[in-house]
């Protein structure tokens, strides 16, 4: 989670100079783009070809602690294996948010090198329902073309979140 609050700070400091009550079109809006990691531990999956994981990530520090969201979506996700003893996991990965919204379901090749950012389709990228809460519930369903070679490793998902805040 980020400790940076620079933008908010600069905004407030500079607003000093402004006649801040002058805006006519409602609250001033900002777009904030931030990212956070979800590291999901995979245990006992060796020799299997599929596994499912559930996790919740604390996102209270996300987006400079903003609270008044106008719009929020997850722009992309990057996937990476951590401490995996094999080469890679090739197969299909499905990522759900809040247990019922599938934001990603496609074939990937996972390794210890992060994938290129996978762009989340606009029709499923809206995360307004969860962004205001302090937790981000994630479900990952993976099916591998070959049996898993490790019994204890992790999958790291890096989400890039973009929000319009007031």
């Amino acid at each position: 989670m980020k400790k940076i609050k620079v933008m908010k700070a600069v905004l407030l400091l500079c607003a000093v100079f402004a006649f801040s009550s002058c805006e006519e079109n409602g609250e001033i809006q900002f777009i904030i783009k931030d990212d956070f990691d979800a590291v999901l531990l995979v245990k006992g999956a060796k020799d299997q070809t599929s596994f499912s994981l559930d996790s919740s990530v604390n996102i209270s520090d996300l987006l400079a602690n903003s609270s008044e969201f106008v719009y929020a979506d997850v722009e992309s996700v990057t996937l990476q294996l951590v401490d995996y003893s094999g080469e890679s996991i090739d197969g299909t990965i499905e990522v759900l948010i809040d247990g019922n919204t599938t934001i990603l379901n496609e074939s990937v090749s996972l390794s210890e090198t992060p994938t290129d950012p996978i762009i989340i389709p606009e029709e499923v990228s809206n995360i307004m329902d969860v962004i205001s809460s302090e937790t981000f519930p994630i479900t990952v369903n993976t099916s591998s073309d070959e049996p898993i070679e490790d019994d204890d490793f992790s999958i790291k998902l890096t989400f890039v979140v973009k929000a319009t805040v007031e």
């Binding site: 933008m7 402004a18 006649f19 777009i31 931030d34």
Partner: peptide, 14 residues
Amino acid sequence: VSTSALPGSGLKEA
């Protein structure tokens, strides 16, 4: 973290 550049005062609009 990325964020929009600072806004103007809104004086001109007002």
